[in-house]
């Protein structure tokens, strides 16, 4: 198939439609549809959880749990609320952040230097955003934020860093970090809605 011939927007719409149908079939307990859904979407979702969790072992456990959730909740998917990939990515990301919180509680006492390095060694992928209209708009709006605002928002989103951790990481008072986030989100919303 000559990929270049197709309008990318049509292709997205077609893919969304296929995913919506597969989710509907999953809601009716169709395992074959679930297999197909997995084969189409798992690389994307694995990328997402791997980005957040960093460790492959955790990411694989998390991916499993995320797909079990997709299977069990397929009947709750609402196409009018979000595109199928947005919905599934949110499930995967939430699952990853939950796992991260759980592990963080477990290692709270030990001095976890490893995590700090993970955050440092992993540039945030904000440059590749422009692949879709929404992506381009978000990127444009993120660019209007102050550098520190953008950084704390991205770190929270991708790494699940808490207010305290963000304050420590950026060497900034806690109150300032909280303000950066609140103002950053507020500006982002206004910019995206304008």
């Amino acid at each position: 198939m000559a990929k270049g011939d197709r309008d990318p927007q049509d292709a997205t719409q077609q893919r969304n439609q296929e995913l919506e149908q597969l989710l509907a079939a999953c809601a009716l307990n169709d395992r074959t549809a679930f297999t197909r859904l997995y084969s189409i979407t798992s690389a994307k979702l694995y990328g997402v959880v791997l980005r957040i969790l960093y460790r492959e072992e955790w990411a694989q456990d998390c991916l499993q749990d995320a797909y079990i959730k997709v299977w069990n909740n397929a009947g709750n998917y609402r196409p009018q609320v979000a595109a199928p990939m947005t919905w599934m990515s949110a499930i995967a990301r939430n699952q990853a952040l939950d796992l991260l919180r759980k592990h963080k509680r477990e290692v709270m006492e030990s001095d976890d230097k490893g995590r700090q390095e993970q955050v440092d060694g992993d540039p945030l992928p904000l440059e590749g955003l422009s692949s879709s209209d929404e992506g381009m708009r978000l990127q444009r709006c993120l660019e209007q934020l102050k550098e520190q605002q953008r950084q704390v928002i991205a770190l929270a989103y991708f790494k699940g860093l808490t207010h305290d951790e963000l304050a420590a990481y950026t060497d900034t008072p806690l109150g300032t970090v909280k303000t950066w986030i609140r103002r950053g989100l507020d500006q982002l919303r206004r910019c995206l809605e304008s």
Binding site: S42, Y46, Y67, I68, W71, P125, G128, L129, Y157, L188
Partner: peptide, 27 residues
């Protein structure tokens, strides 16, 4: 919906086959 495009930029990574085997067993 607003923040989801941040995930667009994440590179897809094919998971090992064992993950699917486990999922399949669990359902």
């Amino acid at each position: 919906r607003r923040l989801a495009p941040m995930l667009d930029a994440v590179e897809p990574v094919t998971p090992p086959k064992a993950v699917w085997d486990q999922i399949s067993r669990r359902i």
